[in-house]
Amino acid sequence: MPEEPAENISGGDGGGGTPAAFAPGEADSRAEAVVDELGRMYWQKAYGGQDAFECLVRTILSQNTSDVASQPAHDALMERYAGRADLAEALADAERAALAETISSAGLYNQKSEMILGAAERICDEFGGADGFDDFVKDEDPGAVRDRLLDIHGVGPKTADCVLLFAGGRGGVFPVDTHVHRIARRMGLAPADADHEGVREALERDVPAEKCGFGHTAMIQFGREYCSARKPACLDGPEACPLYDLCDRVGVDEVDETVVDPSTAEE
């Protein structure tokens, strides 16, 4: 099995978790078959154990940018503010301009610094700091945790689900980023016009709970290596994509070598 690509924060060195191989067996759905095939290509890991507040900050930094850009911002933030016992308290007291400068490599740093400061203040007010928030994420009902996270400014469904998965270790959570949203609809694992929540619901329904977290990270890497937005590997022929036989290729015209968003593909 190849080593984990370090640039994928979700599944790479910063992802936490422990090895957890599973025997693919006979899949009960095409979505599960896809995840099992990805298991033959990439790593398998059970997630959980990250500090919940740091995970939240890391995921906010990764919004609308690559891991290559957000990782240095995360490292710089931790170097500057993690010296205190409680990271949430340190960031709640931070000066916004200084924080924005610290995370500038992540892009949209003014917006993200405001989101992080606001989240830190909420968590200190409602949970007494990072430790109380960590206990809440790991011990409370996942639905209640997700709703509470979504109530924080700047936290959308993908960010909330990443905290549930990587910090809470919750099974059955399949975060949907741009790669997962594109690939699931292109392959026909979710309706072509499904929004991010629709894709999440379809995948969490059809992929066993213990495989959802791994499916998320593996599908991201598959999107980077094979199923890109503009030139998926199948345009080079069936042999170029290892998942060709499991894919409907919605929006992909192999003859004309054109690609459109699945939601705009003709019936």
Rank of each mutant, 00 (worst) to 15 (best):
Y81T: 09
A82W: 00
A82D: 13
G83N: 04
G83K: 09
R84V: 05
R84E: 15
A85R: 12
D86F: 01
D86E: 07
L87H: 02
A88L: 06
E89M: 05
E89D: 09
A90V: 06
A90D: 02
A90E: 03
A90K: 01
A90P: 03
L91S: 02
A92L: 06
A92P: 00
A92K: 01
D93P: 01
D93H: 05
D93K: 07
A94V: 06
A94N: 09
R96Q: 13
A98C: 08
A98I: 09
L99W: 01
L99E: 12
A100C: 03
E101I: 01
E101V: 00
I103K: 09
S104A: 15
S105Q: 12
A106P: 02
G107W: 03
Y109G: 13
N110Q: 11
N110G: 10
Q111V: 13
Q111A: 15
Q111L: 13
K112E: 14
K112C: 14
S113F: 00
S113K: 02
M115H: 13
M115F: 14
I116C: 12
I116A: 14
I116H: 08
A120H: 00
A120Q: 01
R122F: 05
C124I: 04
D125M: 03
E126V: 01
E126C: 07
E126Q: 13
G128S: 10
A130M: 06
A130W: 04
D131E: 14
D131Q: 13
G132E: 07
G132D: 05
F133R: 03
F133L: 02
D134K: 00
D135E: 12
F136P: 00
F136W: 10
F136G: 09
V137F: 03
K138Y: 06
D139Y: 00
D139A: 14
D139M: 08
E140H: 00
P142S: 14
G143N: 13
G143S: 12
V145L: 09
V145W: 08
V145G: 01
R146N: 04
R146T: 02
R146S: 03
R146M: 08
D147H: 08
D147F: 02
R148F: 07
L149Y: 04
L149K: 09
L150F: 00
D151H: 06
D151F: 07
I152M: 15
I152W: 11
H153S: 15
H153Q: 15
G154F: 02
G154L: 05
G154K: 03
G154S: 06
V155W: 06
G156A: 15
G156K: 08
P157Q: 12
K158A: 11
T159V: 15
T159M: 14
A160S: 10
D161C: 06
C162V: 13
C162K: 06
V163C: 02
V163G: 01
V163H: 01
L165W: 03
L165C: 07
F166Y: 13
F166Q: 11
F166A: 07
F166R: 10
G168M: 12
G169A: 14
G169S: 13
G169T: 12
G169Q: 11
G169I: 08
R170E: 04
G171L: 14
G171V: 11
G172I: 14
V173C: 11
V173N: 10
V173P: 04
P175H: 04
V176Y: 09
V176T: 12
D177S: 11
D177Y: 07
